[in-house]
Write a protein that binds this DNA or RNA. Structure first.
Lengths: 197, 197
DNA sequence: TCACTTTGTTAATGAGCGTTAACGCATTTC
DNA sequence: GAAATGCGTTAACGCTCATTAACAAAGTGA
């Protein structure tokens, strides 16, 4: 895995801060001046890097959905031959990593989707749908008793469980990152197992 | 149980429609004219019933948190003597009923909290905290191996799971309300059980 | 019947905010 | 070294939108 050591570009700085602010106070709750201030420039300066406030949100949401889907496809391919169980564990692990490392993005992901232009929103929804369907396939391979609608509901519910990380106290009240990840992983598997009945 | 047959008061109509609109497009995404139109009057007419837009949101959020806590306390008292298992099942059932019947409110509940005045926000947070702690107590009675921080994380995560109902396809793709409720219930129990390890 | 409250209406106000205009200054490029 | 380009700045514009003002009409009660 190639870890990048070069400094983040200005666009990336802006996106990161915008994500944090949008997650904290909502898309309409944040002004461009505020986003600018967060990266050390002033409001209108942002327009050298983005067409507008909407464009920032769009790039964030499309990026998130794309990353999730790409990662999931990669894990599916990598673990090929390792059995469905291993793939599911890998999917869960990947989603947890994302939920723990990019809390603001997780928050945005299902909160500000309606603010997008139609074309962007369709794109995001399609990526999300593919991601869900990929999970549904793997889950049904592991838990063979599950019908498709039930499996889909179960997947959405487990996403809700995994995406709860923003609500887990921000401070050091957590049992540590590793322990939290393990706990979430166990609970996800337990939830799926209980779905089968 | 006394079911009310009298017509809803204007205040209630407004709150209901405001909740729906806020959930759909976010607090800042909805104008007072729109809320007014939803109940057949025009924007400024709302000010005969509420001090302002903020006041509507505040009343909604405080109301939600209060109802949840009150209901939980009632269930705890009613099932007294029935054992911790029965209480936990009752809590889960109550939360699911709420999540299924009042989806807009569930959405608002953790989405627009920051828009409140300090005093209101503190109030809501305190109600939420009491609700969580009540659950934590019951969960630790049922699953005796759970430490307090782990139990609290588990409770938050299960809330995430149960509150995922808005993401389950709005149309008839669900397996029906009863089946969905049962599925969520089983998954919640499974998640808690898996948390213990 | 007459005052008063309740519940609306439309018009005006004023603030906030996204966006654009106009300009400045390094840094690169030929 | 001159021109172009990248990346900022501040000032101004224009629109949206919550809120208030001013007014109207329907009940209500003495």
């Amino acid at each position: 895995m190639a870890t990048r050591t070069d400094a983040p570009t200005r666009r990336e700085q802006i996106l990161k801060e915008a994500a944090r602010l949008f997650a904290e106070r909502g898309f309409h709750g944040v002004g461009v001046d505020e986003i600018g201030a967060a990266v050390g420039i002033s409001g209108p300066g942002l327009y050298r890097h983005f067409a507008g406030k909407d464009a920032m949100l769009a790039e964030l949401l499309v990026g998130i959905s794309g990353q999730l889907l790409t990662g999931a496809k990669r894990r599916l391919a990598e673990a090929d031959g390792g059995g469905a169980e291993a793939v599911l564990d890998s999917l869960i692990e990947g989603h947890i990593d994302f939920a723990l490392d990019d809390r603001p993005l997780i928050t945005l992901h299902d909160r500000e989707l309606d603010r997008l232009r139609d074309s962007d929103r369709k794109m995001v929804r399609q990526l999300q749908r593919q991601y869900v369907e990929l999970w549904v396939g793997v889950v049904r391979e592991v838990y063979v008793g599950l019908g498709e609608p039930v499996a889909r509901s179960a997947v959405h519910s487990v996403f809700g469980l995994l995406n709860s990380t923003p609500h887990l106290g921000r401070a050091g009240s957590l049992p540590g990152r590793g322990a939290t990840a393990e706990l979430l992983h166990r609970m996800a598997r337990g939830a799926f197992a209980a779905a089968v009945d």
